[in-house]
């Protein structure tokens, strides 16, 4: 059996030691946000399984996926900007 200290060392470690709680919350929010984007695209048929309206020449389902690709790009860009700033600091 493992003692308490060992259990701690073997526990799931997601963040680097000394990560402020605000940063942890922010990272978790981005993680959840990206998971939601993945799930929405995987389940697009729940929200946009139709041809009409045709938007920018695409059937609605295809347009819906394209919009979420754009949202994903923006989310990643924001995440990168924040982390790049932190790395410089």
């Amino acid at each position: 059996m493992l003692n308490e200290q060992e259990k701690e060392g073997y526990g799931i470690t997601i963040f680097s030691s000394g990560t402020p709680s605000a940063v942890k919350t922010r990272k978790l929010l981005f993680f959840i946000g990206l998971c939601v984007i993945i799930l929405i695209q995987a389940c697009y048929w729940l929200f946009a399984n139709s041809v009409e309206p045709i938007v920018i020449g695409m059937p609605f389902g295809m347009f819906f996926i394209a919009v979420f690709i754009a949202i994903e790009f923006v989310v990643l860009l924001v995440l990168y900007a924040i982390e790049a700033n932190e790395m410089e600091e």
């Binding site: 984007i37 993945i38 695209q41 995987a42 697009y44 399984n49 394209a66 995440l79």
Partner: peptide, 18 residues
């Protein structure tokens, strides 16, 4: 429409790499 999945996975495939 099954082909839309290709767009989705191309866009999302590298996200876990973060």
């Amino acid at each position: 429409a099954a082909s839309f999945y290709i767009m989705g996975y191309c866009a999302l495939g590298l996200v876990p790499w973060w």
